[in-house]
C-alpha cells in the first residue's frame, strides 16, 4: 500500500516498519502523535510531496515515479542524498562493523574467519566512503551550481561548463551495493556457522537492509539526479 500526504505517520510505521530509517533520516523524531505526513513535514520544514514519494519508493520496489521526482529542485534531491550518506557513515556502516566485531567462532581453526570478514568489510567501507566523498565534493556541488546558474542566482561561465559534465559521473558511477551480495553468500553458504548465530543473523539482516537502502539511493542518483542535470546542461548550453 502506497502512502499519501494525508496518511498518519504513526500508521505508516505500524504497517511498514521498514521505512522507519528513511523517516528518521529526514530528521523527524518520534512523539508525533496522530499527525499526518503533511503536518509533520510542515513542522520540520520538509517538502511533503518529496517525502511522500521517497517513502513510497522505499515501500514498493515496483514504484518509481521518475518524472515526478525529477520535478523537485536539485537542492531538495541532494539534501536527501547527503542525509542518506551521513546516515550510512555515522550509523549504518559502523553498526555492521560493530556486529562483525562481536562475531565469534569456536575452534582456533575458524578464529581466522572473523579476520576475513572484518577485512572484507573494512575494504568495502573504504570503497563506499571514497564513492560518497567523490559525490559530495564534486558531483553534488556541481549539480547545485548548475541549478543556481539556471535560476540566475549565479552567473554562467563557459569555463565552468567545460570543466565538468555530469556524463563523467554517469559513466563511472558504480553499484556500491554489489559487494554486499558477495558478503551475504560468504556468510550464508561458505563460512562455517559462528558460535553466536543470533549475532550472525543480525549481521545478515543489517546487510540486507543496507543493500536495499543503497540500491534505492543509487536509483535516485541514476534515474533522477543525472537525467535532471543533463537537461539543465542542455538548457544552459543553449543560452551561450
Amino acid at each position: 500500500m502506497l502512502i499519501n500526504k494525508y496518511s498518519k505517520l504513526n500508521d505508516i510505521i505500524l504497517e511498514r516498519y521498514n521505512c522507519m530509517p528513511v523517516i528518521l533520516r529526514f530528521g523527524i523524531q518520534f512523539g508525533f502523535g496522530d499527525k499526518t505526513v503533511a503536518e509533520v513535514c510542515k513542522q520540520y520544514d520538509i517538502d511533503a510531496d518529496f517525502f511522500t514519494e521517497i517513502i513510497n519508493i522505499f515501500i514498493d520496489k515496483d514504484y518509481f515515479p521518475q518524472t515526478h521526482l525529477q520535478e523537485f529542485s536539485v537542492k531538495t534531491i541532494i539534501d536527501f542524498l547527503i542525509k542518506s550518506h551521513q546516515d550510512y557513515r555515522k550509523n549504518k556502516i559502523p553498526h555492521i562493523e560493530k556486529l562483525i566485531d562481536s562475531l565469534e567462532w569456536d575452534s582456533s581453526e575458524t578464529k581466522k574467519n572473523k579476520a576475513l570478514i572484518k577485512n572484507f568489510f573494512l575494504q568495502y567501507k573504504t570503497e563506499v566512503i571514497e564513492h560518497m566523498d567523490y559525490e559530495e565534493t564534486i558531483v553534488y556541488p556541481y549539480s547545485i551550481k548548475m541549478e543556481k546558474i539556471l535560476n540566475n542566482e549565479q552567473t554562467l561561465s563557459i569555463k565552468e561548463l567545460r570543466k565538468y559534465a555530469i556524463n563523467i559521473y554517469a559513466d563511472t558511477h558504480d553499484d556500491i551495493e554489489e559487494k554486499l551480495l558477495d558478503l551475504k553468500n560468504i556468510l550464508i553458504k561458505y563460512l562455517p556457522p559462528s558460535s553466536n548465530l543470533e549475532t550472525e543473523q543480525m549481521v545478515l539482516f543489517e546487510i540486507f537492509r543496507l543493500e536495499k537502502d543503497l540500491n534505492n539511493h543509487s536509483r535516485i542518483e541514476e534515474k533522477v539526479l543525472i537525467p535532471k542535470i543533463k537537461l539543465i546542461e542542455t538548457e544552459l548550453k543553449q543560452m551561450i
Partner: peptide, 15 residues
C-alpha cells in the same frame, strides 16, 4: 559461487 569481487573470491579460496 555467487561471488564477484576479488576480495570475496580470496575469502572463498582461503576457507
Amino acid at each position: 559461487l555467487g561471488i564477484k569481487s576479488v576480495a570475496g573470491l580470496t575469502i572463498y579460496a582461503i576457507i
